[in-house]
Computed example of a mutant assay.
Amino acid sequence: MNSNLKNLIENVVKSTVDTNENIDAAYLAAAIEKELHEQVTLTSLRSKLEVLFEYEKNYLELIKSYKEEIKFASTIQEDIRKERAKFFAKTLKEASNTLSDSQVESTVASSWLKELVESYTQSLDLSSVLIEEHSMDMVGKIREEAKAHKMQLEKVAHHAGEK
């Protein structure tokens, strides 16, 4: 606590305590100073906790408001994974069997299957990148909104602390 406040407390205690009483003015002043310091610290902590609570509450509200977009991005990512698995488990096998049944020369069939795998993999990879970028943009947007709200809360708390 600053020395001006400490001196003020000591002067107030000295002026209110009768010198004939067995009360140690310095001890009483220190006790008052300690209690005041604890109250100020508690008020400051309470204010910071309120800002943090409101920030977290707002963050959850933002996530709720973007719930559909989050579900959409998650569903697309899941669909891409399923599509990739299906391609390698079923589609590629069917294409290979069709080429074999059509009696396409094995080197031609192999080359064609290789190009099919590369093309399809690139397409799925591009889709994954696009949805990942969209997801990251959405997370960034949520964080920016939450940060802006937190700054507003901190300003309000700061101004309330000045009063």
Rank of each mutant, 00 (worst) to 15 (best):
A109T: 05
S111V: 04
K6H: 14
E115Q: 15
Q77G: 08
K150P: 02
E33D: 10
T16I: 12
K82N: 12
D137V: 01
K90D: 10
S65K: 12
E10Q: 13
L8V: 03
A29I: 01
S102G: 11
R81K: 14
I23D: 01
I23E: 08
A160S: 10
E21T: 10
Y66V: 01
I131Y: 06
L130H: 10
S44Y: 06
T107E: 15
S111P: 04
Q39V: 03
A148Q: 11
L113C: 02
Y27D: 09
K155T: 09
S106V: 14
S119H: 13
V51T: 08
A30S: 13
A160H: 13
L124M: 14
M136W: 00
T98K: 14
H37Q: 13
K155W: 06
R143W: 06
E94I: 12
E144K: 11
K150V: 03
K34C: 02
L45D: 00
I142P: 01
L62A: 06
L62Y: 05
L28N: 01
Q77F: 07
L49Q: 06
Q122P: 00
F72C: 01
K34Y: 11
R46V: 04
E54M: 07
S3K: 15
E61C: 05
D18V: 07
K150I: 01
Q122A: 13
V12L: 11
T43D: 04
S47K: 00
E61Y: 05
I70E: 01
V40Q: 05
K6Y: 08
S44G: 06
V139E: 04
S110N: 15
S119D: 11
D18T: 05
V156A: 08
V108S: 12
D24P: 02
K34N: 11
G161W: 05
D24I: 06
H158V: 00
S111R: 14
Y27P: 04
S96R: 07
K71F: 07
Y66K: 11
S100T: 10
A148F: 07
L8N: 10
D125L: 13
T107L: 15
A157D: 02
V13T: 04
N2S: 15
L60C: 09
E133C: 06
I9H: 02
E50M: 06
A29W: 03
E21L: 14
E54P: 00
L126W: 05
I23M: 09
L28V: 13
E94P: 00
K90M: 07
N4R: 15
A25W: 02
E50D: 05
V139H: 05
Y55T: 13
V51A: 08
V12R: 06
N2A: 15
K6F: 08
N7A: 09
H134R: 08
K155F: 10
D101E: 14
Y59A: 11
K90L: 12
I32Y: 05
K6M: 13
N20I: 03
S3W: 09
